[in-house]
Simulated assay, not measured.
Amino acid sequence: MTHTNSNGEWVNDASKEVHTKVEEARLELAAAEYVEGGDKDMLANIAFKSVVGERSGYSRGLGAGIKPQKGKAVTGIHEELKKECEKRHDIEMKLKDVETQLQEERKMREEMTTKFEESQRQIGEEMEKRVEAKMATMFRQMLNFQVSI
């Protein structure tokens, strides 16, 4: 607001260029889902800092709503971020372990299914042979019975 006149035109080209770059950076961050939940103020602050920069204890851009953080706060945030990254890494490792176990179980199930189908086929063949043998024996007995009559 401090860099536009009453009809909304930019006071100078540098302000317009900074605004354009910040908007582009904010849209890129939002498109990349940089911030979970899409907090617009946080995206705007991150985009603004990436375009105009910052130095310790001072933020450029009057009225931008960016508050520089003190050293202890930044350190705490970095420690928190590190812990969260470690948690994420642990979860990813557990997920990989679970995926590996799942693949092994699928492979075992496929092998068991194959073995079961093979044993069913073998049982069927054996049953057919036994039935044929039994029928042949019965047929011979019938022939012997008829010959003896």
Score class of each variant (00 low, 15 high):
Leu143Met: 11
Asp41Ile: 09
Trp10Thr: 01
Ile46Gly: 00
Glu79Asn: 15
Gly65Phe: 04
Met112Val: 11
Gln122Thr: 06
Ile66Pro: 00
Lys16Leu: 09
Leu43Trp: 02
Thr137Gln: 09
Thr20Phe: 12
Glu86Asn: 03
Lys94Asp: 08
Lys21Asp: 02
Arg140Met: 01
Glu54Thr: 12
Asp13Phe: 08
Lys82Arg: 05
Met93Lys: 13
Ala31Lys: 14
Gly53Leu: 06
Lys40Arg: 15
Gln69Asn: 06
Glu23His: 11
Met127Tyr: 09
Leu143Cys: 08
Leu27Cys: 06
Glu33Pro: 02
Pro68Met: 07
Lys16His: 12
Glu128Asp: 11
Gln120Cys: 11
Arg60Glu: 08
Val74Glu: 07
Lys94Val: 06
Gly65Arg: 06
Pro68Gly: 04
Thr113Pro: 01
Glu110Ala: 15
Leu27Tyr: 09
Glu104Tyr: 09
Gln101Ser: 12
Ile123Leu: 15
Ser56Lys: 13
Ser148Phe: 08
Phe48Asn: 00
Asn144Glu: 14
Ser56Gly: 10
Glu17Pro: 04
Lys87Ala: 03
Leu62Arg: 05
Arg121Glu: 07
Gly8Pro: 01
Lys107Gln: 15
Leu95Ala: 14
Ser119Gly: 02
Leu143Trp: 07
Val131Ala: 10
Gln69Val: 08
Cys85Phe: 11
Glu17Phe: 13
Val52Lys: 01
Arg140Phe: 00
Lys49Ile: 05
Ser119Cys: 04
Gly65Leu: 05
Thr114Phe: 12
Gln141Pro: 00
Val74Leu: 10
His19Tyr: 14
Arg140Cys: 02
Arg88Tyr: 08
Asn12Cys: 11
Leu29Gln: 02
Met135Gln: 12
Glu28Arg: 14
Ala47Glu: 00
Ile91Thr: 12
Gly65Tyr: 01
Ala32Leu: 13
Lys49Pro: 02
Val18Gln: 06
Ala30Val: 06
Met142Gly: 08
Gln103Lys: 14
Ser6Arg: 07
Glu28Tyr: 13
Tyr58Phe: 15
Lys96Ile: 13
